[in-house]
Design a protein around this nucleic acid. Structure first.
Lengths: 367, 367
DNA sequence: TTGAAAGCGCTAACAT
DNA sequence: ATGTTAGCGCTTTCAA
């Protein structure tokens, strides 16, 4: 249905053998000007295009990269996939995309399918690097592959945000702004080792500065009841002046819940998010956050894969330090030295405009 | 590299011909229990999987659907692609994704590539339905295809938001809330016929209610200077109390700019967005907007394609009326009857909570 | 029930 | 310079 003319049809119409057609169209081997001419007109007349299926069978190569991510409804993955796809396309490769919906069975099935489809390489985010059936499958075939957003186990190559280091960075920022009592709001850790690493880094950073260990508020996936949870949490930990949310959406939800509890952000509470989504800068107050570069990670993963396939380009390795940067925002404000224990006093609140400029500078530096 | 064992290897190991292996594995034709056994163990031992490339060449079918969209960095497309991909996967099809970055040449190239890859069908969003080289290419091969987010020309099938009807709806909403003087903020129409249709529908709706024709503010892609543009716009049209933004991001940007101009939303100005992105409900005020269901559109497009391919499933047709719904939000507030000409008076400002409940009811109705 | 062989579209080795 | 042909992995006749 999709294709009509084959190389045979072209050969017949041009009055030559199929090999000649192949040679002309691929600019490989010799062909007379006359033959070239005849072939080209036949191609035009038939609107001929090679079938990649035939080529793939013959060359044992598909010029296709498989990509497995949990869900592109999450903009972090969407952007990464977009970046990966662009690099592939530039190199003449196409991308087969499968979303697993955070489901381990789907993940295995997806990888099996991609192997069957004979992709030349796979870029993937798995649920658990230590225990992934699909990953084992890939390894047993020595298929070029590259992890994305998974912390690489020893010897593995991966493009991912250094969640631990980013967590440390947030602790540094809180410290610099004089917040000593902090909290962390995250999804329950069972479903996200990434959030756990952010928390661990954050704890580490707090310890480095001799700050109180961060209080932990684990919330479910259902965001509706964050407000009462936050209320109870803050009653248990009344000293807290700074909260690190495991991602920007959660940070926004936290700000909203705080507002419902008549807690003003940033006057009464400073909030720092994670990811650096676009809207963070469009709202009021703007969101202080860890900015990541999903596109770059995706593009990097593609470059890695491509260099594994062609062997030509020197293997690109992600630089851990460059996988994130902090962006200041109105949701974070310095806290004056405590006048009394536990009392919160705001010092020289920066105007929104100042904060914005600060954010901009920070951003430019990191690019 | 990717694949090792072929059907030949299995046959050899099982001590039979390749045809037997094929029959056993496909459950087609007869095979003795003994042979089945031998084949299955050979398969296990070799960890054999069929090569889809070989199958495709033989069957002239690839079980692959091509998908061409401008960019999945736009969550509207990301969600649509995700929905489309899921439906494909459920039906045993995979998805080859190409993003065109709103570039016409890329679009043509993408479609050419997908044809060469012998995809069984194509789901696509083109820049200009009336004038798309790629679309012509597809039509000339009678390849099953389905438009997504493009208004279908006569006889064409397309899954898209009814932008015009949605525009009318927004006018209705403004009218119900007593806003008679309105404006429309959109990207310059050259690059988006969708925004133009929203505007035309909006104008139509305003005319229906004998309202002033909406004033038009066309902004460039660069959002930085929205504030001065908005300022000038509102000075030219001082009566405006309601603004319809062509999408939610632009609505947020408009709210931000308004705030910089000391115009309070919704007290001094009501804003309605378009798309229904998640964060619209997480900010303060919540964003009144037209909610669309990108996932459903994508899924619908896939169903259409699949039924075109298999002919079995009854062809799904998009229902125009169900492609959007209005969601109330804090950014829109009723305006009291004008006390003096041009003077704006807010009537019974709804608490955020009320607005939220209202939004929720609206949302539940529409699902 | 089973195997041999043709053929899907293409490339590359070989022959002319 | 050009044509013939084998073979990539698979399915499907067709014979046995």
């Amino acid at each position: 249905m999709g294709q009509v003319a084959t190389i045979k049809d072209v050969a017949q119409r041009a009055g030559c053998g199929v090999a000649t057609v192949s040679r002309v169209l691929n600019n490989k081997g010799s062909a007379s000007a006359k033959m070239r001419e005849k072939v080209m007109t036949a191609v035009k007349e038939l609107d001929f295009q090679f079938s990649e299926v035939g080529r793939s069978l013959q060359s044992n190569t598909t010029r296709t990269i498989g990509c497995v991510v949990p869900s592109i409804e999450n903009p972090v993955y969407a952007d990464a996939v977009q970046g990966a796809q662009e690099v592939c396309l530039d190199a003449g490769y196409q991308m087969l995309l499968i979303c697993t919906n955070y489901n381990a069975e789907m993940e295995t099935h997806a990888i099996r399918t991609l192997i069957a489809k004979q992709v030349d390489g796979i870029i993937l985010t798995v649920g658990d690097v230590q225990n992934s059936e699909g990953l084992d499958l890939i390894r047993s075939r020595t298929l070029p592959h590259c992890l994305l957003y998974n912390t690489a186990p020893a010897g593995q190559i991966s493009w991912a945000v250094d969640d631990h280091a980013a967590g440390v960075k947030v602790a540094d920022v809180f410290f610099e702004n004089n917040h000593k009592h902090t909290g962390f709001v995250g999804l329950d850790f069972l479903s996200s080792d990434r959030a756990r690493q952010r928390f661990e880094g954050f704890s580490q950073g707090c310890a480095n500065h001799k700050m109180t260990p961060p209080a932990l508020l684990e919330v479910g996936d259902n965001e509706d009841n964050l407000t009462p949870q936050l209320d109870a949490f803050l009653k248990r930990h009344p000293n807290i002046t700074g909260i690190f949310a495991s991602n920007d959406y959660r940070a926004l939800a936290t700000i909203r819940s705080a507002r419902q509890l008549s807690i003003d952000v940033p006057r009464d509470m400073s909030i720092v998010g994670f990811d650096g989504i676009k809207v963070g800068q469009m709202i009021d107050p703007t969101l202080a956050t860890i900015v990541t570069a999903p596109r770059k990670l995706g593009a990097g993963a593609s470059q890695t894969i491509l260099s594994m396939i062609t062997g030509s380009t020197p293997l690109q390795l992600p630089l851990k330090e460059q996988t994130f940067s902090f962006r200041a925002g109105g949701s974070l404000m310095p806290l004056a030295a405590e006048s009394k224990d536990g009392e919160k006093v705001a010092a020289f609140p920066p105007s929104d405009d100042q904060t914005y400029k600060k954010a901009k500078i920070q951003q430019e530096r990191s690019t």
